[in-house]
Amino acid sequence: MSSKTQNNKAWWLVAPVFIMVAFNALVPLMTVVNYSVQETFGDNVFTWAGVHWFQDVLHSERFHSALLRQLLFSGIVLAIEIPLGLGVALTMPRKGPWVSVCLVLMSLPLLIPWNVVGSMWNIMALPDIGLLAKVINGLGIDYNYTRQPVAAWFTIVLMDVWHWTSLVALLCYAGLVSIPDAYYQAAKVDGAKTWAVFRFIQLPKLKHVLTIAVLLRFMDSFMIYTEVSVLTGGGPGSATTFLSIDLVKIALGQFDLGPAAAMSLIYFMIILFLSWLFYTLMMKNEDA
């Protein structure tokens, strides 16, 4: 019978958090809402614009292609990182001295600041001096991410996989070690092969962890900005101009605050909707 402890005075302890959230989430958000329905030419002079900006953004070719790129990127990244992370977690040792070595190695990429990651890969992949570029060109493949869209995409995806697969792996690992030994023993006794153990014990028991991994990776990859901005700046051309990059270009590059605000809100709603969709789909068939 699960029931939570009740103590009404505890609400006061939450008050500072409410105030914090109000200042760093609600107030900025409402400012954006304010901008998205008005026209301004600076000097705090506003005129009502209604849903004009929203219509503009939704009908803009530029927005559509940025959104498409963004979806494609998240799709590719999820399709690689989730199975790869799970695979890595399955091969990690459960006991012994190697556990801590593995854990430290796995967490290294997570400790590096995002803009540093961008710079690192920038240097690695530079056509004239980068190690990565040298190796690939050495294999006889023409590779230059500053000019070729495919090469740019390849580099960004590779960078993201390098940066974030260990997060998925660590989450899955935590899930795997929490499965009681009796399950593995029962499977042995029932004569289950490795695949059956994975399919009927490990995968079902990892469901919650995987849901969290997918959600985190989706949200993060859908909002990716820093690394891409440092590495390609959205280029070549607009090949890697994702929603986030486009948004900054409009807002800070062109100072179109109204459209930028409308776009931000639409962007926000898309993330909210897609996260909800993932969650509901993955938690479907869940027993009460």
């Binding site: 023993q185 029962a186 006794v189 029932d190 004569g191 014990i201």
Partner: peptide
Amino acid sequence: IAQVFQFPVIYDTMTVYDNLAFPLRNR
């Protein structure tokens, strides 16, 4: 050898039928 453990070990995603059939299917 077959074994019944202290805490029930079942294959959550399967039906009762599939659980019972599992050791035979594996063989």
